[in-house]
């Protein structure tokens, strides 16, 4: 009954108007403020994504077959 925070996929052109509005709002903010201001918003988010990705691969390396999967991923990235 209670709404679940959950990711539902949409194709680009099927996204609704609030998606475009959000991008426009962000673009206006970036244009109106120097990098030193907007980097405070986006910097921690990017840092967190990198930390989460590294932690994911550390966990993957500890499960059976994980190291081999990481090697395969690296081969895919090179090609």
């Amino acid at each position: 009954m209670f709404p679940i925070l959950f990711c539902l996929f949409e194709r680009e052109h099927q996204r609704d108007r609030t998606h475009t509005e959000h991008i426009e709002r962000w673009a206006k903010f970036v244009k109106a403020h120097p990098r030193s201001i907007w980097i405070r918003e986006v910097g921690p988010l990017i840092d967190a994504q990198i930390i989460m990705a590294n932690t994911f691969y550390e966990r993957l390396a500890k499960v059976e077959g994980g190291i081999e999967k990481i090697r395969k991923l690296r081969r895919v990235e090179k090609n």
């Binding site: 709404p3 539902l8 609704d16 609030t18 998606h19 959000h22 962000w26 918003e41 986006v42 988010l45």
Partner: peptide, 22 residues
């Protein structure tokens, strides 16, 4: 009307939560 809405931490732009109904 099946249109999503967005929540952010007060005073911030990102990250955002997109909320919509199935």
């Amino acid at each position: 009307n099946k249109t999503s809405v967005r929540y952010v931490r007060k005073g911030h732009f990102i990250p955002e939560i997109e909320l919509k109904l199935a």
